[in-house]
Amino acid sequence: MKLVIINYGAGNIKSIQFAFKRLGVEAVLTNNIDEIKAADKVIFPGVGEASSAMRMLQESGLDKVIPTLTQPVLGICLGMQLMCNSSEEGNTKGLGIFNVDVKRFSNQVKVPQMGWNVIADLKSDLFKDIKEKEFMYLVHSYYAPTCNEMIAKTDYEVEYASALQKDNFYGVQFHPEKSGIKGSKILENFLKLKTNN
């Protein structure tokens, strides 16, 4: 199986690569469009600021490619947020895969949310053998509100979508690669998803 991690200059992708390596899978880091299209599974990572990450995607043409992918794609953290319609962070347009607009937490809570919180109302094969209210590690200041494409929710000031799915596109706000053995299980589940939807 060919697994690629889209390498467009954003964030800590080594951790994701190592997490798959612990599962026995070598993930290839690439920004090559043909290589990404040809992969069986695609990881779309992202840590940092939304509008500058979006610019990097536009410069490499990846903003046009990602929404046309047909194999399972997993956006992680900012990757998930960039798959939404827009983000309040830097007032940027997103890839428009998930029909939801990313907002900032208010100052009623500490921002960023940093640490372990639970995911609930789990609704996807991505969460096979993951129990309700399992703990995941999150670090973020912006969130996707609850919406039709929500497959997991988390509570921090408001209930929001901590995972999204539309067709072959999956997004998780938490960091499965940093969420212990349960996070690792989610990555394993992603690897087991059928390749042709």
């Binding site: 080594k14 940093k178 212990g180």
Partner: peptide, 11 residues
Amino acid sequence: VLKVAKQVNIP
């Protein structure tokens, strides 16, 4: 750091 990142699955 590289050795730790390879083996540790928490932040």
